[in-house]
Simulated scan of single mutants.
Amino acid sequence: MADWVRKFLYRIFCVTALMVSVYLIVDFLISGTFDYRVFIMFVLMVIVVIWGIVDWRSNYVLIRQKENELRLYQNYLIPLEELVKEIRAKQHEFDNHLNAILNMHLTIDNYEELVAKQSEYITEIAREDDSRKYLPLLKISDKILAGFIYSKIVRAPEYVQTDIRVWNKEIVSGISEHHLIEIVGTLIDNAYEACTEEKNQVLIEIDSQNDKLIFTIKNQVENIGLGEISHFFEKGFSTKEDGKKHGLGLYNAKMLVNRYHGEITVGMEKIEERKFISFVVVI
């Protein structure tokens, strides 16, 4: 029997039982044959039915949560697997580059020229191999979070430069996976939307302390006043020109963080003479 059929039949049974119970009690009262023992029996039956409904509802919510988490695994482990495949594919290229560097002395006799050529060659390889800077994501224990962040990075505008730093690879948090993805997704989307070709730096930091995840994202910005920052988590507030379509992301993210008794803060900081806005989630 299909799952939806079982759910439907169970609901019909509960509603019917309640209706019969109410009908019999009313009938007893009208006919004058009311017996408190029968009433107690019906009350107990009603309690059992109500308890069954509540229990079914709680189980249904749990099942839906597990289904959402399974969907997250399916959606965001694939990008991570693609990163692994890309790195493995480049392993052969790396071996070739290494051989080329080791054998440069066969064609270059001058020591200073050899060092300069090797340095130039290595610099060029590092510049072309963008996948290596995402290696920290492979180290963290939360593979769904890693795959999700990587999927966001590869879909970001080409001019955006993202730097990843992982301070603790063992990620521990009490928040459900799909709510964590919702919060992190909102912060990453906001950071990328705020970037321009001139202000294009984004820094993501992942840490875990005292059984809590610490997620930090910073993006380069123009001047933003403290008064404006203080309104970021208000419902309907937006710095975008089409503000009517925005202003709920950060508000919803804060509501989710509060639900899990976490903390989300925003501030400004200067890194190498560049101004960044910083969001920190501890949950």
Rank of each mutant, 00 (worst) to 15 (best):
M1E: 12
M1S: 13
V5C: 00
R6L: 13
K7Y: 11
Y10C: 13
R11A: 15
F13E: 10
T16M: 10
L18H: 02
M19E: 08
M19D: 08
Y23H: 14
S31M: 06
T33W: 06
Y36R: 10
F42N: 01
I47R: 00
I50Y: 06
R57E: 14
S58C: 10
N59I: 04
L62A: 15
K66D: 12
E69T: 15
L72W: 09
Y73Q: 13
L77A: 10
L77Y: 10
L80K: 06
E82F: 11
L83Y: 06
K90L: 09
F94Q: 03
F94V: 07
L98W: 06
A100T: 13
L102K: 06
L102M: 03
N110G: 08
N110M: 05
Y111K: 14
Y111C: 10
E112D: 11
E112F: 03
S119L: 11
E120Q: 12
Y121W: 07
A126N: 04
E128H: 07
D129C: 09
R132K: 13
K133H: 08
Y134A: 08
L135P: 09
I140V: 09
S141F: 04
F148W: 08
I149S: 03
R155M: 15
A156Q: 08
A156F: 08
V160W: 01
D163K: 15
R165F: 02
E170G: 09
I171K: 01
V172N: 12
G174M: 07
H179D: 15
L180V: 09
E182G: 08
D189I: 02
D189M: 08
A191R: 03
A191N: 04
A191H: 05
A191M: 01
E193T: 14
C195Y: 07
T196W: 10
T196L: 09
K199R: 15
K199N: 12
Q201M: 14
L203R: 09
I204T: 06
D207T: 03
S208N: 03
Q209D: 11
K212W: 08
I214K: 02
F215S: 07
I217G: 00
I224Y: 11
G225I: 09
I229W: 02
S230M: 07
E234L: 11
K240T: 15
E241M: 10
K244H: 11
G249I: 09
L250N: 03
Y251G: 01
N252Y: 04
V257Q: 02
R259L: 12
I264Q: 05
I264G: 03
V266F: 06
V266H: 06
V266K: 04
F279E: 03
F279S: 04
F279L: 04
V280T: 05
